[in-house]
């Protein structure tokens, strides 16, 4: 029974991981920018929802604000940080350090203005009821899984059936050709950041309602997103989402054998193993690195 309970908890965590990882993978796949501030978008979205909730606004308003905050943050990062750096052929490391700096600034600002430590949104949705003997499930579990499923379906349709989506995939393969066709590589790149960052918002809201936020949560989110992207295979959105789901389930199932503080270590052992033995990931194509 414990196994089933942990599996269900794992699916909920996994759905959250899958959404954030897919956002990160979308941005990295399309623009080749290692968006290390993706966890910061998550933090901002989570705290935006928290503030809306504290102000007594209805949930859907808070959700809209959270999505807007994450999206604007992603677009601002592209426009004001990454684009100036790439103009002088910034190396991977330059991009990484710049994003890291932004992450530190936001983390401390959030700590100063929203308070340090755990902050949660209390809602009826996270009250668990006993659905089977010894199995407790809260409505938020189904909401998390359904949200993730709907968003992935929408994302797939967008990437395969719309002009913007096809252009986004084309950017990943050949930026020069994009320009030849008269499309703006910069515009598509902003679009990738907008969508990728928006995907972090629902995950942040669910996290705020369940395990809670803290000002440093961005690091954890970032690490999971990177781990899922690498384990799934760089450039594969499906891989990142699946790997995110698997990491969430693995972390939860591991609790049968170890204490909670080791849950994160499970993800990193998986990441470490993949880096050492299969750097191209599950769905990845072999790449020269």
């Amino acid at each position: 029974m414990l196994f089933l309970q942990l599996l269900l908890n794992g699916l909920q965590t996994g759905a959250i991981y899958a959404l954030t990882a897919a956002g990160f993978a979308l941005i990295f796949g399309a623009t080749r920018i290692f968006h290390f501030a993706h966890g910061t978008a998550f933090t901002l979205a989570g705290y935006a929802y928290l503030f809306a909730w504290r102000a007594g606004w209805p949930g859907w308003v808070g959700a809209l604000i959270a999505v807007a905050v994450a999206t604007l943050f992603g677009m601002a990062m592209e426009r004001f940080v990454y684009r100036p750096i790439q103009r002088h052929e910034g190396s991977f490391f330059t991009v990484f350090v710049a994003a890291f700096g932004v992450g530190i600034v936001v983390q401390n600002l959030v700590g100063m203005f929203a308070g340090r430590g755990l902050a949660t949104v209390d809602t009826r949705l996270s009250f668990a009821t006993e659905v089977m003997p010894e199995i407790f499930v809260a409505p938020i579990l189904w909401i998390a899984i359904a949200t993730a499923a709907v968003l992935f379906a929408a994302l797939t349709v967008f990437l395969t059936r719309t002009h913007a989506g096809v252009a986004l995939r084309a950017l990943a393969q050949n930026p020069d050709l994009i320009r030849t066709y008269g499309l703006s590589a910069n515009g598509i790149s902003v679009l990738a950041f907008a969508i990728g960052s928006a995907l972090a918002a629902p995950a942040a809201i669910v996290t705020a309602m369940t395990s809670g936020l803290n000002e440093a949560i961005g690091h954890h989110v970032m690490l999971i997103s990177i781990a899922a992207t690498i384990v799934g295979g760089i450039g594969s959105l499906r891989g990142a989402a699946l790997a995110g789901l698997m990491l969430g389930v693995a972390e939860s199932l591991a609790l049968q054998f170890v204490d909670t503080q080791w849950a994160e270590a499970v993800s990193f052992l998986a990441l470490f193993a993949f880096i050492l033995f299969r750097p191209s990931g599950i769905f990845g194509v072999a790449m020269a690195r």
């Binding site: 290692f34 781990a227 080791w262 052992l269 470490f272 880096i275 050492l276 750097p279």
Partner: peptide, 27 residues
């Protein structure tokens, strides 16, 4: 990991090492 991968991948591996090590130090 430095022998196997570089760039982004290595940063990820070293971050993982950092997180696991803190858990080990505390436990």
């Amino acid at each position: 990991p430095a022998l196997r991968v570089r760039g982004e991948y290595f940063v990820a591996a070293s971050l993982g090492l950092q997180m696991v090590a803190v858990t080990l130090f505390a436990e």
